[in-house]
């Protein structure tokens, strides 16, 4: 087997007679179709399948050779694809982690009802009973001023001594409960209702922050999708342009191939594979860059989480998301090549 520099292939049929006779004989079985008695006839299906397989391999090899020895524009395009898909990957990474953070945060769904200073024990029990009757209320408990003070000291840590100078405990009684139903509107309605009850000073719940984060994520998702669509469209056109330049640079070769009897698909397929290779390498580059961002962003994420009082560990993209980035790269390469071939390679 002796592949040529252009990657033409390689099936060998033996025989010891003169080369010319062997060529005539082998061409009868190796060609995809041949002209006999005024009409073109096809070879047997099995043979065609072998030819088809070797043809694809040859085309891939030719595309790889072109890419390998390719011009600066090939690598520039590959880098552009990599950077564009990295922006997509980074958005995916960010949104995916923000969603995870949101899930963890809303998992607490803690509501705290602060009671007025002069509320009696009977009133407190009555309010607790009323709250217990509401659907989805779980783990209800009364927090005494002393318990609240202990928590605050615990939170302040080494600064807790500051509270020792207080004469009286200014903290009120409070009632804490969790909601099993995490829907924002239901929680908001319940919080509003409890806030109107007699003896209730104020109601706070941490889901309000979660809802704000959800709104931010929603905006980011929209911006991310819009940016990604714009970027990927630009990338497809850039790939198309690169393939166009390749076609122009190889126009003479295309014409030579034509008069030597190469079929349209024989001429076009390597250009398609070239586009796909650019997309594939761009996607691999994007995954490497996204990994770098993930690696570099872990520390920053932990600090951000600490600022919000939560433990937050950045997680990497899931297998499905990685596959989407790879598929996008390949798809862009394919689309770019097809656009270019349909517009600039009229055979």
């Amino acid at each position: 087997m002796n592949p040529t520099p252009d990657g033409f292939s390689t099936r060998h049929r033996g025989g010891k007679k003169s080369a010319a006779r062997k060529v005539r004989r082998s061409s009868a079985v190796n060609r995809p179709s041949t002209v006999k008695r005024g009409k073109v006839v096809s070879v047997a299906d099995g043979n065609a399948a072998i030819i088809s397989k070797s043809f694809q391999l040859r085309s891939m090899q030719r595309a790889w050779n072109r890419f390998h020895a390719g011009s600066l524009s090939h690598w520039t395009t590959t880098i552009i694809i990599a950077l564009s898909l990295t922006i997509f990957g980074a958005f995916t990474l960010l949104l995916s982690n923000a969603n995870t953070a949101l899930d963890n945060w809303t998992g607490d769904n803690l509501v705290t009802v602060f009671l007025e200073e002069r509320t009696s024990i009977e009133q407190i029990e009555s309010i607790q009973t009323e709250i217990s009757k509401k659907s989805g209320v779980d783990q209800i408990s009364v927090v005494s001023p002393a318990q609240a003070m202990a928590r605050m000291k615990n939170m302040l840590g080494s600064e807790a001594g500051l509270l020792d100078s207080l004469d009286d405990n200014p903290l009120p009684f409070s009632i804490e409960f969790r909601l099993t139903d995490k829907k924002y509107k239901k929680t908001a309605n319940l919080v509003y209702e409890i806030g109107t009850w007699q003896g209730v000073e104020a109601v706070s719940y941490d889901q309000i922050w979660a809802e704000k984060l959800a709104a931010v994520i929603h905006t980011f998702r929209f911006v991310g999708i819009a940016l990604t669509v714009l970027l990927l469209t630009a990338v497809a056109l850039i790939i198309s342009n690169t393939i166009k330049l390749t076609i122009i640079a190889r126009r003479d070769e295309v014409e030579v191939m034509r008069f030597m009897g190469a079929t349209d698909s024989f001429i076009k397929t390597p250009f398609v594979y070239e586009g796909v290779l650019q997309g594939l390498f761009g996607a691999i580059g994007a995954l490497l860059l996204t990994s770098l961002l993930y690696w570099g962003g872990q520390g920053a994420a932990a600090e951000l989480g600490a600022a919000f009082g939560i433990f937050f560990e950045l997680h990497y993209l899931q297998v499905g998301q990685l596959l989407i980035i790879m598929a996008l790269g390949i798809f862009l390469g394919l689309i770019g090549a097809l656009i270019s071939l349909s517009r600039f390679l009229e055979i």
Partner: peptide, 30 residues
């Protein structure tokens, strides 16, 4: 001449045979 510059004289001549699915060994001999 319109020969492909990156190929040798023999490889240029082999090209139509290879396009016609002839094996490289036979194409080279021919």
């Amino acid at each position: 001449h319109r020969l492909l510059p990156e190929f040798s004289a023999r490889e240029n001549v082999m090209m139509p045979l290879l396009i016609g699915r002839c094996s490289p060994k036979l194409a080279k001999e021919r």
